[in-house]
Structures are given as structure tokens and as C-alpha cells.
Simulated scan of single mutants.
Amino acid sequence: MRTMQTAVGVFGGDNCTDGASTSPLLMVQGAGHSGRQAISSLDCPPFLAVEACREGVHPCDKRSSITKYRTLFPAIDFSLIENDEDVLWEPDVRETNESVALRGMKFFDWLWTREEKEIAIVSHSGFLYHTLNMYGKECHPTIAEELGKHFANCELRSMVLVDRSNLGSDASKYNFAGKIPTGLDMPSDVADEKQAEEASKN
């Protein structure tokens, strides 16, 4: 509930004050006793709920049914969650940090299958902390240290994930795409002049 409220508050559309939105609502008014106005999905990115990136499965972290969430967040896609009720939760069991991290790594494996290039992940600090600490074990120590920092409340971090097995495998022109850029290693205007000179010689 908390992460969905945060996600639609940050990435959702305008508040719906007149109740006459032509798009499905991302969040109905007062969802989860929030006191918030309804939020429209007009001109918003798609929202997809993923069970794997929830908080650690602790006695206080039992989720509500997906049926209930669908009524509160009509425009969020819950199709990837197989069970209506929370089958991960047990009343007297606290999920270990290692289990949270392993679940997080499975989430990262799923993330690699997505076609989108920019994805916002809205989750809990504990899940992100343990997942990124495990993810950082194979990184340079300075990167691992940066990844291993605790998240502040509502903190936003930007990361670029690179699949090393694909480095240089296509003709991407952008550094941020995780590929080796083509062309000369110099400012683009200078590179364009150099390439034009080379073309005129040939």
C-alpha cells in the first residue's frame, strides 16, 4: 500500500477534484486512509505491481488482497501477481536478510527481461538495501560502498545497470545505454567535422 501510494504520488497525473476523469484512476480518493485526492492516470507511464520487490516478509508486513488493491488503484497492472491473498506471509516468521536479498536478485533477473530502458522502482528501504548490497558484491569496492548505503525516507537514486556480456554488441550512440559508443572519442561537433573531412578525401 505505502509503495503504491508513493509511486502514484510521484509519477501519477493530476489530482482529480471533480471526479470526472476520462482515464482510469491510479488511486481513488482516500486510498488506505491517506486523505489524498484521487490521482489520474492521464499521460502517465504504465504502473506494474511486482510481488518480488516488496518489503521483507515480516509479521507486520502482510499485504491486503489484490482484489482490494484493484479497487483502490484501478490503473495499476496486477497481472503478474499470481495469488489474490498473501501466500508469502506467515504470522510467526521473519524473513532473513539473505532471503530478502536473494528475492531481490530474482527481481533483478526479471528486470533484465524488460524492454524499457528507463524504469522507476518504488519499493522499501530494507528490500533495496539488502538487494543492492548483494548486487554490489561483484562490483569495484567504491561502487559497492555507494550501493550499500541505507536509503533515507522517500530518497530517489538514479542507477544505470549494464549487462557486461552485451558490451559493444550493438551500435548504440549513447553512453548511458550501457554500450560502447561508436565514432570518434571527442565532442560531437569536432567529430562531425573530422568525419566530413575523411569522407571528402575518399
Rank of each mutant, 00 (worst) to 15 (best):
G168M: 05
D192Y: 09
T131C: 11
S23K: 13
V87H: 12
H33P: 00
V28G: 04
D14I: 06
R36V: 01
V190G: 00
K179D: 13
K137T: 12
M4F: 11
E197Y: 11
V160P: 02
S200Y: 11
W112F: 12
P181A: 10
D109I: 00
F176G: 00
E197W: 10
K68L: 13
D92M: 08
N97A: 15
H140D: 15
E116A: 13
L48Y: 06
W112K: 12
R164K: 14
L80I: 01
R70E: 15
C16F: 00
Y135R: 07
G30H: 05
R157W: 01
H58Y: 15
D163L: 09
H150V: 08
L184T: 01
T113K: 14
C53W: 07
E98L: 09
V28D: 06
L102V: 12
L132V: 03
V93Y: 14
A196H: 13
I39S: 02
R164P: 11
K117G: 09
T113W: 11
E138W: 05
R103L: 02
H124C: 05
L26I: 05
H33K: 15
E138M: 10
E146Q: 14
V28I: 13
Y69I: 01
A120L: 07
G168Q: 06
G9I: 01
A152V: 00
V162Y: 05
G35W: 05
E118K: 14
R54Y: 07
P187L: 04
Q5H: 09
E155K: 01
G148I: 07
F127S: 02
A199I: 03
W112Y: 12
Q29T: 04
D86E: 07
E85N: 14
M159A: 08
P181N: 11
T3L: 00
V122N: 05
A20K: 15
P59D: 11
M186G: 09
Q5E: 12
Q195R: 15
P74T: 05
E116I: 03
E197K: 14
E115A: 12
E118G: 00
I76D: 02
G56W: 03
M186Y: 05
D192M: 06
M1K: 10
Y129Q: 07
S41V: 01
H140A: 14
L128C: 10
G12L: 04
G183P: 08
K106G: 13
A177V: 00
M134D: 05
R114G: 03
F151H: 02
M105A: 03
R157K: 13
I66G: 03
F47S: 04
H33D: 06
D163A: 09
G136N: 08
K106I: 01
A31T: 04
F107G: 08
I39V: 15
S200I: 08
